[in-house]
Amino acid sequence: MPIIVNLDVMMAKRKMSSQELAEKIEITNANLSILKTGKAKAVRFSTLEKICDVLECQPGDILEFRKSE
């Protein structure tokens, strides 16, 4: 998919573990893993808002568009 989720990069920058982030944004570890591995088909605005709030970043820091070749 041309939309890349850079969540793990942002988590590394903020030195935050998956467990901690999952707890703070109130989603399960399994769902966070789906998000991190790029298997997710959509992200709710509410989830994105929580992620941006916790990681102190912009949606563009987490999501990236790359043209498929």
């Binding site: 989603i27 966070l32 789906i34 998000l35 997710a40 088909k41 959509a42 992200v43 709710r44």
Partner: peptide, 8 residues
């Protein structure tokens, strides 16, 4: 359903 399941 699959789309719903993979909407986080």
């Amino acid at each position: 359903k699959s789309e719903n399941d993979f909407t986080i």
